[in-house]
Design a protein around this nucleic acid. Structure first.
Lengths: 139, 139
DNA sequence: CATAATTCCAAGTGAATCAGTAGGGATTTA
DNA sequence: TAAATCCCTACTGATTCACTTGGAATTATG
């Protein structure tokens, strides 16, 4: 029940971009250094976020990455789902799940749904802007 | 962010024991067959639950397993934590976590804590008895 | 124009975890 | 005595994780 480094590093990176938005493109090198993450690995994660349309890139010297939209319009859920796939404690409660099985009603499924929904509730209602505000308030 | 088969099969097994409590020991063979799980694999999961004190075993022919206490006194959280370890989306929000790191305050940590707490809220407030009641109501 | 700084891309890799299997031993009922 | 059960230890193939390697393409700056 742990998130992989994809989701964890990815969210840290997105937070950094949100924190410095308006300052022009931020190179991955800076983020990788400040968070002590392999730059090359982070590159792969950010590539996924770029393909999904959450960040824009600027190539060449002085280049880097920027959020593609306002921090208040990107949720933690957007980022995590993009990098980790759907949040679901069991396959049978994923969006596209084939009908569960033997019984049309399965008790454990009810539990998995409750877990899934409560996690989604949290991550869909926290934006990058919320994280930035939280950070500023605590410094 | 998926549970492994340990937690999923384990909870199904515990539900079966709860559903048939009062009927004497239930052999794993029955559970494995009805849930289409490898009996030998399930054996290992139930051994963990037994060592943790959630089930009792009766050896020999006509033997099997029983809940060690009332279904209303065993939560989904008990079962899942026993088989999967602590529920925490990131190491830094586990109980015994060493102090997170570079900064005394970390924004992503706040997010992981909210996720962890919301999952715990669900699993600690659902008992095996709740699952049985739910099952009966829906049949 | 050359160089350095960056993003972009594809493949490979050692370690760990997952989801079991294999092969028995011990205990109890019929 | 035989069958049904639980109990225990070790092994294993497949997959995923968390990177590393090794470059190519693009752009700003001197």
């Amino acid at each position: 029940m742990r998130l992989s480094t994809k989701g964890r590093y990815g969210l840290k990176a997105m937070f950094e971009l949100a924190l410095h938005s308006g300052e022009g493109p931020i190179p991955l090198k800076d983020i990788a250094e400040s968070q002590n993450i392999s730059e090359h690995y982070l590159e792969q994660l950010v590539a996924t976020l770029r393909r999904a349309g959450y960040v824009n890139s600027v190539r060449g010297a002085q280049g880097g990455y920027l959020l593609s939209k306002a921090a208040k319009n990107i949720t933690v859920g957007d980022v995590i789902r993009c990098l980790e796939g759907q949040i679901a404690p069991a396959e049978c409660v994923m969006e596209d799940a084939a009908d569960c099985n033997r019984e049309s009603y399965c008790v454990t499924q009810t539990v998995w749904k409750k877990i899934r929904d409560s996690v989604n509730e949290v991550i869909d209602n926290t934006t990058l802007q919320d994280m930035v505000d939280d950070h500023i308030k605590n410094h």
